[in-house]
Design a binder for these strands. Sequence first.
DNA 1: TATTGTTATACTCTATAACTATA
DNA 2: TATAGTTATAGAGTATAACAATA
Lengths: 153, 153
Amino acid sequence: MPKPPKVSPLEAHLGYWLRFVSNHVSHAFSVKLAACDVTVAEWVVLRELHGEDAVAPSEIAARIGMTRGAISKLVDRLAAKALVTRRPGRDDRRYQSLALTAAGRALVPGLAALADRNDAEFFGHLKPAERAAIEAVMREIVRRHGLRTVPTN
Amino acid sequence: MPKPPKVSPLEAHLGYWLRFVSNHVSHAFSVKLAACDVTVAEWVVLRELHGEDAVAPSEIAARIGMTRGAISKLVDRLAAKALVTRRPGRDDRRYQSLALTAAGRALVPGLAALADRNDAEFFGHLKPAERAAIEAVMREIVRRHGLRTVPTN
DNA sequence: TATTGTTATACTCTATAACTATA
DNA sequence: TATAGTTATAGAGTATAACAATA
């Protein structure tokens, strides 16, 4: 008897549906951010700096699971947009002090509102219990697998 | 009274948790595929060609929501790996006939098994009802928003 | 010697748009 | 002229690794 190939369809995987929805949610958000000339990766960095006095690039990299090189380029762009300042560290000059500029501080709440609105567009129709159940499942998967990085793309 | 900034944390958004998990699921899958020298985007094209006699690049592009230029480059790589053949169309020579090679046909079931295993690693612990509920929510969001493209990254 | 941040290089994915071959 | 496929260009994101400055 010939062996059947048994190739499961893409839609058989829950990961397929999560990626499908997640990518569209992220894309819709990136379009909203683009109106403010900010990318999703830049938003994540801005959000990390919000409410902080000074954070080192390596600290940001560790928090959001990116390399120092990637953070360096992101901070280049954010500094060029005058949203973030780089200052040499006081005690240990290897460490830089990153901080939001006044323009950056002024911008972040508006971007956060875009994030709220984007989430509501896709998930606002869910019953609170449905929403909480899905969040709990995702948190449990993060915990089980020890996932650490913040996804930016 | 001063207005409070009201910057919601990233974790307040369900989209954050979906992207967090989804990106790790995709990344884990991409690592498994890399052992077979295949990317996720290439896998999606291979999967579309599986079980088909001949499909035009523009048809693939329409199905998975990529541009013809992107498909052209992907097919370049798949042809270089001898997994896919390009033949000129019979009746209308503007249309190409893409098809899996014997090597491509032999490879696809193994890749599908990797996809099954990857999904099980992340979602295998869920109760069938939990899994079905999440899939139903995602399908409903896809339906509500008329989402069409297959996510490949 | 170890660590921070920078830079160079490279690769994937994506999109736009100009280009060709065919119809 | 309209469409299919190709190609060039660009940009975002990512990673690795070599590098300079600092400790």
